[in-house]
C-alpha cells in the first residue's frame, strides 16, 4: 500500500514538473531574451535548413551570449527611465490621493449613522458595475478634450484614484468596523476632537488595512494600460506599460529592450503579489458574494 502511494507521487511529480516547466516557460523566455543582448524575437540565428537539434537549441530559453547590454541600453539609449519615472510618480500620487479619499469616507461610513449613508455606500458599489469602455470615451472627451489634461500626471492620477476608491472604501470600512468603538468613546470623553481621534487612534490602528489598500491602489495604477495609452500621446509622457508596448507594437520590434524593461517593471509587482495574494483573493471573493 505504502509502496503504491509513493509510486503515484512519482507520476504526480513528473506531471507537475512538466506542467510547471511549460507554465513558466514564457517567464524563462523573457529572462533569456533580456540577457541575450540582442533585439530579435528569436534567441538564436538559425541556419538555412536547421536540424532537429538546432531547432531544439533555438527554443531552449538560454541566450546565445550572456550580456546585460539590454539592461544598460534600455536606460541610456531609450527613454525607458523617463517612462518608469512617470509610472512611479503617477502610481505614488494615485496611492496618496486614493488612500486619503478612501480612509476618510470609510471612516465616516463605519462610525457615523447619518442620513444618506446607505445611498452613499450603494453608490460606491454600483459604480463598480460601469464597464471600463463606457467610461473611457467620456473620460477621454472630458479630461483630454475639455479640461486639456492629456499628457499630464494630474489627468491620469485623478482618474486612477477615483476608480480605485470604491474597492478601497469597502475594504477599509470592513476593517474599521472591527476596531472597537470604546476606544474612541473614552477619547471623546477625555476631550479629544474627531480629527485627533481619526489621526491619532484610528489610522494607526488600521495600518495593516491601509497598507493593503495602498498597495492595491499602487498596483492598479502601475499595471494600467488602456487609459494611459489614450491619455498620454507624446512619447515623453508615456507610462511604463505604454512604453513597453511601444518597443514591440506597430513597426518597431526591439524585443530585447522590451524583455529587459518587462523584467524591471514586473519584479516589484510580482514580489508584492506573491506576498499579498491571500488578502487579494479573500477580498475579491468576499466582494463578489455580497
Amino acid at each position: 500500500m505504502a509502496n503504491m502511494k509513493t509510486r503515484n507521487h512519482i507520476w504526480l511529480h513528473l506531471g507537475l514538473i512538466s506542467f510547471t516547466l511549460l507554465a513558466i516557460y514564457p517567464v524563462l523566455w523573457v529572462l533569456a531574451l533580456s540577457f541575450s543582448g540582442q533585439q530579435s524575437v528569436g534567441l538564436i540565428d538559425l541556419p538555412q535548413d536547421p536540424s532537429f537539434l538546432e531547432r531544439l537549441r533555438a527554443i531552449l530559453p538560454v541566450p546565445e551570449h550572456w550580456s546585460v547590454k539590454n539592461y544598460t541600453e534600455v536606460w541610456t539609449e531609450q527613454q525607458f527611465g523617463r517612462w518608469l519615472w512617470n509610472s512611479v510618480v503617477i502610481s505614488l500620487m494615485t496611492t496618496l490621493l486614493g488612500v486619503f479619499l478612501a480612509c476618510t469616507a470609510a471612516y465616516a461610513f463605519s462610525r457615523f449613522r447619518f442620513p444618506g449613508r446607505n445611498t452613499g455606500m450603494l453608490m460606491f458599489l454600483v459604480s463598480q458595475m460601469f464597464p471600463g469602455t463606457l467610461m473611457l470615451i467620456p473620460l477621454f472627451i472630458i479630461i483630454v478634450k475639455q479640461l486639456e489634461l492629456g499628457n499630464t500626471y494630474l489627468g491620469l492620477v485623478i482618474v486612477y484614484a477615483t476608480t480605485s476608491i470604491p474597492f478601497c472604501v469597502w475594504m477599509l470600512k470592513g476593517y474599521f468596523d472591527t476596531i472597537p468603538y470604546d476606544i474612541e468613546e473614552s477619547a471623546l470623553i477625555d476631550g479629544a476632537s474627531r480629527l485627533t481621534i481619526f489621526w491619532r487612534i484610528i489610522l494607526p490602528l488600521a495600518k495593516p488595512a491601509i497598507a493593503i489598500t495602498a498597495l492595491f491602489s499602487f498596483m492598479t495604477a502601475w499595471n494600467e494600460f488602456i487609459l494611459a495609452s489614450v491619455f498620454m500621446e507624446s512619447e515623453a509622457n508615456y507610462t511604463a506599460p505604454v512604453g513597453l508596448r511601444f518597443f514591440v507594437g506597430g513597426f518597431s520590434s526591439q524585443w530585447g529592450y522590451f524583455a529587459a524593461g518587462s523584467v524591471i517593471v514586473s519584479l516589484p509587482v510580482v514580489a508584492l503579489f506573491l506576498q499579498l495574494q491571500k488578502y487579494l483573493i479573500s477580498g475579491l471573493t468576499a466582494g463578489s458574494v455580497k
Partner: peptide, 11 residues
C-alpha cells in the same frame, strides 16, 4: 504556478 497571475497581463 502562481507566477502567470502575478505578472502584469499586458506584459
Amino acid at each position: 504556478l502562481i507566477l502567470p497571475w502575478a505578472i502584469p497581463n499586458y506584459i
